[in-house]
Amino acid sequence: MDTCKIIAAGKAAAQRTVTNDDLSKIVETNDEWISSRTGISRRQITFDESTTDLAYRASVDAINKSGIDKNTIDLIIVATISPDFFMPSTASMLQYRLGLNENNVTAFDLNAACTGLIYAIQVADKFIKSGSVRRALVVGSETLSRTIDWNDRGTCVLFGDGAGALLLERSDSGIMADYTNSRGDAEMNLVLPALPLDSPFSSKLDSPPSKMTMNGGEIFKFATFAIKDTIDNLLRSSRIEIEDISLVIPHQANGRIISKVSKLTKIPLEKFYLNLSKYGNTSSASIGLALAEAMEDGLIKKGDKVLLVGFGGGLTWGGVIHEF
């Protein structure tokens, strides 16, 4: 019992389907432009569900799939950059929604942007391996639609809403290697501002725009570096060859990044699991959502070694190799 295993993956797709054609009616864009540059055909956008609602649905899905008693969960981490509140945290509110308020649960939100779920898995893994936690619920949940400038066709076509939830516990097999890294984004290439300075005593600085901004070219370059760096580190530390990896599930940001990484690493494109054509980029939710669907589609069998890799704002990146 010397590692930590993902025993179930649940998902929640947001309520409304928004196609590329739908977007062409509100900004200057078209299906061909979006598809060829990103591989995205549609995304799910929330109508009235919150980040907590999505996290709750995905968690219930994971709990049902696992068959466990939810009262055995003693750690809840929600990875998000679009929480409903800074305080109370999404994780604490999720604990309440799951009816676990009377239990001894450690609950907190975690911000590592699109690498959030990987960071959260790594944290849960350490809690579990140290013996201080029995079962962890790790969720990536986002309503990015509230963070986007819907007049900016460079960003609004890329992102979507959704949630993925994983249950982790101690096991003989499971996580074989984990790696995370960060590099401060001094050039502000991927930004979502929080509250500006504002008090009777503070300087009157200009407020930054309150919506997400991205330098696509620089982030593309970073992403291709980050995926390759993660794969190299994970293979080296686990002493596994890439041929032994059955599936690579990357953060679902842009199909062109994956094509580029496939060329650079010589890993065949078929080995990468992609569902971004349906969901777009759902930041912290994307890897959990993808893993849940890959498992539902029967693509992962017992004994398969799967590599999860994330990369995003911070700048952050990292991954795990997990044996199912």
Binding site: R37, G216, G217, E218, F220, K221, N254, R256, K260
Partner: peptide, 22 residues
């Protein structure tokens, strides 16, 4: 397209071992 230009510039940087500012 815009992404292909990024990839081309990355290829020039690798081939000639230089950095090309935006």
């Amino acid at each position: 397209d815009s992404l292909a230009i990024v990839e081309i510039v990355m290829a020039f940087e690798d081939e000639f071992d230089i950095k090309i500012p935006e």
